[in-house]
Computed example of a mutant assay.
Amino acid sequence: MAGILQAAEYAVIVKADSPVNKISQNELRNLYLRRQNFIENQKVIPINTLANNEGRLEFEQRVLIMQRNKLNKYWIKQHFKGITPPSTVASYKAALLFVSNVEGAIAYIPLSMVNQTVKVIYEY
């Protein structure tokens, strides 16, 4: 049986005036795993929501393609290399506010929350 297409529920966003218009899943994965820090000559500040947030779990599984235990092991290894995970905010509203005000910030929020202060560069 062929795979079932799933409608996008979440948007990866940047500030509305960002030069970044789209991003590949691989680039997004590299940014959030801190393997890459720039996109289109723009320093990127990836933002996560809290660990128990449904959107974060979806992001980890559908974009990073990692289960939580594997991701935790990854960050333990990175810690010893001096690499820290992305910063965390308490809510989607906080993520939206941060991205709309901070140059280079990138985050994920429900598609329904997107407004004119941000630009969608990826959907999942």
Score class of each variant (00 low, 15 high):
1 M>S: 11
1 M>Q: 09
2 A>D: 12
2 A>V: 09
2 A>T: 08
3 G>P: 02
3 G>Y: 05
3 G>V: 07
4 I>K: 13
5 L>A: 12
5 L>C: 08
9 E>T: 07
9 E>Q: 12
10 Y>W: 03
10 Y>K: 11
10 Y>L: 11
11 A>D: 08
11 A>S: 15
11 A>T: 07
12 V>L: 12
13 I>M: 05
13 I>S: 05
16 A>V: 08
17 D>Q: 06
17 D>Y: 05
18 S>I: 10
20 V>L: 15
21 N>F: 15
22 K>D: 13
23 I>T: 07
28 L>C: 04
29 R>M: 14
30 N>Y: 10
30 N>C: 09
30 N>A: 14
31 L>M: 13
31 L>W: 14
32 Y>H: 01
33 L>I: 04
33 L>P: 06
33 L>Y: 08
34 R>Q: 14
35 R>I: 07
35 R>N: 12
36 Q>N: 10
39 I>K: 15
39 I>N: 06
40 E>T: 13
40 E>M: 14
41 N>F: 12
41 N>M: 12
42 Q>T: 15
44 V>K: 06
45 I>R: 11
45 I>C: 02
45 I>N: 09
46 P>Q: 14
50 L>C: 01
50 L>N: 06
50 L>S: 07
51 A>G: 01
51 A>T: 06
53 N>R: 11
54 E>C: 07
55 G>N: 12
55 G>V: 06
55 G>R: 04
57 L>Y: 09
60 E>P: 01
60 E>G: 03
60 E>Q: 14
61 Q>N: 11
61 Q>D: 11
61 Q>S: 12
63 V>S: 13
63 V>Y: 13
63 V>I: 15
64 L>H: 11
66 M>A: 12
68 R>V: 09
68 R>F: 02
71 L>G: 03
72 N>Y: 07
72 N>W: 04
72 N>L: 14
72 N>P: 01
73 K>Q: 11
75 W>R: 07
78 Q>M: 14
79 H>V: 02
79 H>N: 10
80 F>C: 03
81 K>R: 15
82 G>L: 07
83 I>D: 02
84 T>A: 14
84 T>L: 15
85 P>Y: 08
85 P>G: 04
87 S>V: 13
87 S>D: 10
89 V>F: 09
89 V>K: 14
89 V>P: 06
92 Y>V: 00
93 K>Q: 15
94 A>P: 01
94 A>G: 02
94 A>Y: 05
94 A>T: 10
95 A>W: 02
96 L>D: 05
97 L>C: 02
97 L>G: 00
98 F>A: 08
98 F>Y: 14
99 V>G: 03
99 V>S: 05
99 V>E: 08
100 S>I: 05
100 S>V: 05
101 N>P: 00
102 V>L: 12
102 V>Y: 13
103 E>D: 13
105 A>S: 04
106 I>M: 11
107 A>C: 05
107 A>R: 08
107 A>P: 03
108 Y>W: 13
108 Y>R: 07
110 P>C: 02
113 M>G: 00
113 M>L: 13
113 M>C: 01
114 V>H: 06
115 N>E: 09
117 T>P: 00
118 V>K: 06
118 V>M: 04
120 V>N: 00
120 V>S: 01
120 V>M: 00
121 I>A: 03
121 I>P: 00
121 I>W: 02
122 Y>I: 03
123 E>S: 12
123 E>T: 15
124 Y>G: 05
